[in-house]
Simulated scan of single mutants.
Amino acid sequence: MRIGLLVDEMGPSLDTVVDQARAAATAGFSGVWLGQRTGRDALTALAVTGRQAPGIELGTTAVPTYPRHPLTLAAQALTVQEAVGNRLTLGLGVSHRHIVEGQYGYSFDRPARHLREYLSALVPLLRGESVSYQGETLKAVGAVDIPATAPPSVLVAALGPAMLRVAGELADGTITLWATPAGLTDHVVPTITRAAGRGEPRVVASTFVCVTSDEDDRRAWVAEHFGMAGQIPSYRTMLDRSHAAGPQDTVIVGDETGVERQIRQLFDAGATDLIAMLLGPEDEQARTTELLTDLAG
């Protein structure tokens, strides 16, 4: 199983992020992933941490597209790719209306159109090609010249059918959040696979994982801290497709046997990778890490 670990990029210091990434590599996780929220820049942090976490995938989940022009993001991503020895996976997404319009001041009109135009410019740039692209909302003319750097894999945080079709056609796969096995097998996997029309796109499922005897308490914590996600349209639709009342119904919690069974159900539903977000006190996180690394094998 390909099991990666989400490292908290909002930690108390960048040194803490580096230490956690190094520990994940040592433990045997397949990859380290950083989110992009209101703190450190995920790509910059990966450039710093990558050399201290050798031999594993380094990913973002997910860099928002709107505030970064494709030429700018291509230059940044390829610089990170050079710094970490071609181990970067660039996870990106359109974010949400309340962020794009409320914080950035951009229009969130037809985000799937924006994503298609963005990837149409970005992906060739990551391959080192010169582009002259003019879409309805985006223009990109030029190239990024960083010799001897392989193009990073590109994944899209896509949940709805339009976004999944774009991800399947123009990217290497998707990163999901708040998706259960039912949501993957009934919606995500068939939609992106049909759109890809080639091979098997990556379906990277990210979720909280906790080996615990206090399952109700852990679900209650997720409901308290992430319950508002259920009011965001793209997440609400994914939760409905996953037959989940809220994010708390999508997490993987229980004893070792139960957690292993739930993880296997995700992979049986079509997930190619799991990004585990650790939950609970230190002793439970240690038990969870031991089980996850055993499964990653």
Results as ranks from 00 to 15, higher is better:
Pro147Cys: 10
Pro151Gly: 14
Leu5Thr: 00
Leu278Asn: 04
Arg51Trp: 05
Val222Cys: 04
Ala179Phe: 07
Ala223Gln: 14
Val209Lys: 07
Gln52Gly: 15
Ala223Asn: 12
Trp178Thr: 05
Arg241Ile: 07
Thr288Cys: 00
Asp273Met: 06
Asp145Tyr: 12
Arg218Glu: 01
Ala182Trp: 11
Ala245Asn: 12
Ala21Gln: 05
Ala167Arg: 05
Glu256His: 12
Ser30Gln: 02
Val94His: 06
Gly91Arg: 02
Val154Asn: 09
Gln231Met: 08
Arg194Tyr: 01
Thr212Tyr: 05
Ala245Ser: 11
Leu278Met: 08
Asp19Met: 08
Asp283Ile: 12
Val131Thr: 10
Asp273Ala: 04
Ala24Ser: 06
Ala148Met: 08
Gly31Val: 04
His96Ala: 06
Gly168Pro: 03
Thr89Met: 03
Pro147His: 14
Glu9Arg: 11
Ala83Asp: 07
Val166Thr: 12
Val100His: 10
Asp268Val: 14
Arg194Phe: 03
Leu164Asp: 00
Leu125Ser: 07
Pro64Gln: 14
Thr212Ala: 14
Gly142Ala: 07
Leu92His: 07
Ala223His: 13
Leu164Val: 02
Val222Arg: 03
Ile232Tyr: 09
Asp255Gln: 15
Tyr133Phe: 13
Ala158Asn: 04
Glu200Cys: 13
Thr60Pro: 09
Ile3Glu: 02
Pro247Tyr: 12
Leu164Phe: 02
Arg97Ser: 11
Thr60His: 13
Ala47Lys: 06
Gly227Lys: 08
Gly270Phe: 04
Pro247Asn: 11
Ala21Lys: 06
Gln81Val: 01
Thr137Ser: 10
Glu82Gln: 13
Ala179Val: 12
Ile146Ser: 13
Tyr133Met: 05
Ala205Leu: 08
Asp15Glu: 13
Ser13Cys: 06
Tyr118Met: 06
Arg218Asp: 00
Leu184Asn: 09
Arg40Thr: 01
Thr293Trp: 01
Gly135Val: 02
Glu224Ile: 11
Gly168His: 11
Ala25Thr: 00
Ala24Val: 00
His187Ile: 05
Met163Arg: 01
His69Ala: 13
Leu34Ala: 10
Gly142Val: 05
Ala205Gln: 11
Gly59Ala: 15
Leu274Asp: 10
Ser30Asp: 09
Val141Thr: 13
Ala182Ile: 10
Pro147Asn: 12
Leu184Trp: 08
Asp273Leu: 09
Leu184Phe: 07
Val189Asp: 04
Gln265Cys: 02
Asp172Ala: 01
Thr89Leu: 04
Gly59Pro: 00
Tyr118Val: 08
Trp33Tyr: 10
Arg68Phe: 10
Thr191Phe: 12
Gly128Trp: 11
Gly39Tyr: 05
Met1Ala: 14
Gly55Met: 03
Ile56Gln: 04
Val222Gln: 02
Pro111Ile: 14
Leu73Cys: 05
Thr250Lys: 11
Gln248Phe: 00
Pro233His: 06
Ala150Ser: 15
Pro70Glu: 15
Leu126Met: 10
Gly280Ile: 15
Arg51Val: 04
Ile275Asp: 00
Thr72Asn: 14
Ala205Ser: 15
Pro201Phe: 02
